[in-house]
Amino acid sequence: MNIWDWYYVWEALPYLYRGAVITVQATLIAFAIALVLGLAFALIRQSNNRLVNGAMAETVEFIRSTPLLLQIFFVYFVGPQFGIVIPAWVAGIGVLGIHYAAYCSEVYRAGIEAVDGGQWEASIALNLSRSRTWSRIILPQAIPPIVPGLGNYFIGMFKDTPILAAIAILEMLQQAKNFGAENYRYIEAITMAGAFYLVFSLIASAIVQAVSFWLNRRYHLQ
């Protein structure tokens, strides 16, 4: 028996392709959720209302300190006992997005707090509204520097997608494993999946760098 057999590489390709599509889709959708929701969390945390901002801080802390898998199980398996049935795809991507939103919100927060307080004072002195101050003055300065930090979570989330297999979503690693089980032959499929994760991570980090470069230039920040 050969250590590496190209026959199995060809045979495994359709499986891996189907899995890769799911993995990439899940990553992109869940990360879009994480970006938007994370920003919302971060903005809520800046509220002057102690109650609101404290509750948000606790929520973020709670999400960050329980395992992702547990959160997915909770939504997918515990929900139906109370009559809340959520399809696996929605539950998986939703929880992934919310989980990473908690992490992203901390990155946003660091970016927001790094903006010079003088920018707020100038905005007040010019009588800009609060929403205008956020959208035109603070966020354009807060976000470009934190793109690499957000990008790390993008790649981190991508590598967490195999967890979706736990609620029967056929992402790539699960497909590779199924192929292996059907053929009593794992090495090609698992290796190919590994190569794909590597390539996707490299592409993703190149994209993150490009976005970071472009945003910093667009807003004339160093």
Partner: peptide, 20 residues
């Protein structure tokens, strides 16, 4: 100064008249 670093001199001056 507290100028807005991501805006040109002109944009710095225009921002508030337009939005306020």
């Amino acid at each position: 100064f507290n100028l807005f670093p991501h805006m040109t001199a002109l944009q710095n001056c225009m921002e508030a008249p337009v939005s306020v």
